[in-house]
Design a protein around this nucleic acid. Structure first.
Lengths: 142, 142
DNA sequence: CCTTGACCTTGTCCCGAGGGCAAGGTTGTA
DNA sequence: TACAACCTTGCCCTCGGGACAAGGTCAAGG
């Protein structure tokens, strides 16, 4: 195989970045990575530069950015724009989204605990329910 | 149409329960509802009992239970078992799951805020990054 | 009687981010 | 030459529906 120095296969790239080959192919198909070069036999080949981009993607993903958003950042950077501003905006939006999700979860948790307590209380009073009172109870708020 | 008193269509059931017709058909296909009776022309028909079950499903869903879990509860109840114990167990498991998710989100939020602060700080020092430092930074933990 | 509009039917594709599996080609080593 | 380990593409699955298509049914009004 005509493999240039420093050129690796998808599996090696996966091992070096902590991703899976499947994920790497997905990123290519979604446009986060340029279409990979191929060997004569059709194997994808990756350069160190590609490995850097893949690591970048992994870190961005671990911060909760979506592939589409990561793609935008990469395109900005490829176009020569410093993507800092855009990244800060994305990160800020994600923090807000997390805050909203956590507020929802807190409310849900409260509802679950209340429902459980109500069920245990009625159980101790020896009541019987056709279907368990936990969910039979009319939701007050909502 | 030979529609018995109290027998309604899927759209009417949807309106009475706050669900959509599509969702109701999905629940049937997933086994949460028994296969609906049909009119001669093929329309599904629902009884008041069905409406009660649908309301039950909606409330259980609003508590974050998954369709598969709701199905188990309904099956227990149909089998004559009081599902209270099972429901309590499910609810307890969900509270734990919510706690785990919230812990994850807290950690994620912290990482995002730290990344943002680091980026702003390096920006103020006039540094330039090939790709924004927010994501370039090596992840210490994990 | 016929049309119109609202309703119903089934079916398919889509979302996110891949996982799992199948069927087959390629590589490098024993 | 055989074999394991790799690679390729492609399809179906997740979860809870939303959106849309193409067509059948119902009730009311002209």
């Amino acid at each position: 195989m005509a493999q240039t120095t420093g050129t690796i296969t998808v599996g090696q790239a996966a091992r070096r970045t902590g991703l899976t080959p499947k994920a790497i192919r997905l990123y290519e198909s979604r446009g986060l990575l340029p279409t990979a070069e191929r060997t004569e036999s059709g194997y994808r080949t990756y350069s160190e530069r590609d490995v850097d981009v893949l690591r970048f993607i992994r870190r961005a993903k671990s911060l909760g950015l979506r592939l589409e958003e990561i793609k935008e950042i990469i395109e900005l950077e490829r176009g020569g724009t410093q993507p800092c501003g855009a990244v800060l905006q994305l990160v800020g939006a994600h923090i807000q989204e997390i805050d909203r999700t956590m507020a929802d979860l807190r409310a849900l948790r409260k509802a679950l605990v209340q429902a459980r307590n109500a069920a245990e209380a009625s159980d101790q009073r020896g009541e019987q329910a056709v279907v368990c009172r936990i969910i039979e109870a009319e939701p007050r708020a909502r």
